[in-house]
Design a protein around this nucleic acid. Structure first.
Lengths: 216, 216
DNA sequence: TGTAATGTTTACCAATCGGTCAAATTATCT
DNA sequence: AGATAATTTGACCGATTGGTAAACATTACA
């Protein structure tokens, strides 16, 4: 007899561990491309290499699968911003934040697209997280940036839009990968474009945020 | 008896004009949120305020509707880049490009999201356009930027990544609108954030691209 | 090894999907 | 007005959707 679902979470079997991992991996593949509505359990089942009812044995609904996936992916996704340090000097902090975010775009493009899809749809499943934990984290980092501005280490600017612009420019290489490849052409479709992007973005942000040099 | 489809395009009635407009407007609403796979004809029919068979009278398939919508939206979407002028001086050209793109993000967010959705899914319906017309247009503008670099008007940098960064930062305010609002809070949810964004981005790009000032 | 708990699958369900058809309605033109 | 063409809709189709039930297979543990 199948155990009640509640009990399952009390002690996890090795098989549970493995299969849930396997399912979420497949779910990431599918959800990141087609979004929640556009994805089907059958698709995910096929990618995961198991039957649909078997997926539903581990996750009762498509929603539950999606939620588990997002929960799992969210923490790591915010890691680079969390690492943003008030003690370091602005130039190296911004440089390394850009590097980290670009590495994430290169190494975890599906995770980036998963969130992008969620945003496009109005963030129905993560809106609370955006307004709560994310906003708090960003507020905190914005305060750090403001101290840099006040001490004259970087130019006077809006810290929120600064953060947005780093997010957007870096995630672009994951979310709009097809477009980037199409425009750069086949010959620049190796990972080299990430190095080029890093060079450009560091130059842009470091140059654009450098203080002194009077009027705009 | 219904006319053959081919004849319909020969001479368009007033009703055809109006209804096709009405349908594409509804289709934009739906496709821009849920993407192609995630959208249903019934949804679009409901938004358009007519019956499903009636939609299919004007567009034979969901695909045809989507294609018509993209064709219609594409031309205007690329207008700002086309306006990018070699004759103007770099600073004002870049400034006005940023302004235009931000205005598009503000006034046509659904169009932006429509493309974003398409990109996330691997651009199945516009890949040829990306590799063809878009690439050619970008190549052309990249050449313009290169002349600016060679004549020392802006700093030495990769023109393609410069264009990508303007695209991403500006479109971010349409595609990730929910996130931007959530992080900025209710009080900054008026159109004021577009002005703030414009100010920040102009400062960033103008400052980041300014020549002289030796090593990075 | 036996057995109870866990894991997997086949067969199936009602709802929704994209799309068709024929009948009914409305607009157009003489 | 009457005839003809254009438009709209309700009923329907087979395929696919998210999800269930129950039989079957496997694992873990005494």
């Amino acid at each position: 007899m199948a155990i009640p679902r509640a009990a399952k979470t009390l002690r996890r079997t090795r098989i549970q561990e493995e299969k849930e991992e396997q399912i979420l991996e497949a779910a990431l593949d599918v959800f990141s491309v087609s979004g929640f509505r556009g994805s089907t359990i059958d698709q995910i089942a096929e990618v995961a290499g198991m039957s649909k009812p078997n997926l539903l044995y581990y996750f009762r609904t498509k929603e539950a699968m999606h939620r588990a996936l997002i929960d799992r992916v969210l923490y790591n996704w915010l890691e680079p911003l969390r690492a943003f340090d008030a003690e370091g000097n602005p130039e190296s902090e911004i440089r390394s934040y850009i590097r980290r975010k670009l590495e994430m775009a290169r190494d975890f493009p599906r995770e980036s697209r998963l969130f992008a899809n969620e945003m496009l749809q109005g963030a129905p499943h993560v809106l609370d997280m955006l307004k709560g934990p994310l906003k708090e984290l960003v507020d905190e980092k914005a305060a750090v940036i403001r101290t840099w501005i006040k001490s004259g280490k970087i130019v006077h600017c809006d810290p929120y839009h600064l953060i947005f612009s780093i997010w957007s420019t870096t995630q672009h290489y994951a979310d709009f990968d097809v477009q980037v490849r199409a425009v750069l052409g086949e010959e620049h479709s190796g990972d080299g474009r990430f190095e080029d992007a890093a060079r450009f973005l560091e130059q842009l942000f470091i140059g654009g945020l450098r203080p002194d040099r009077s009027g705009s």
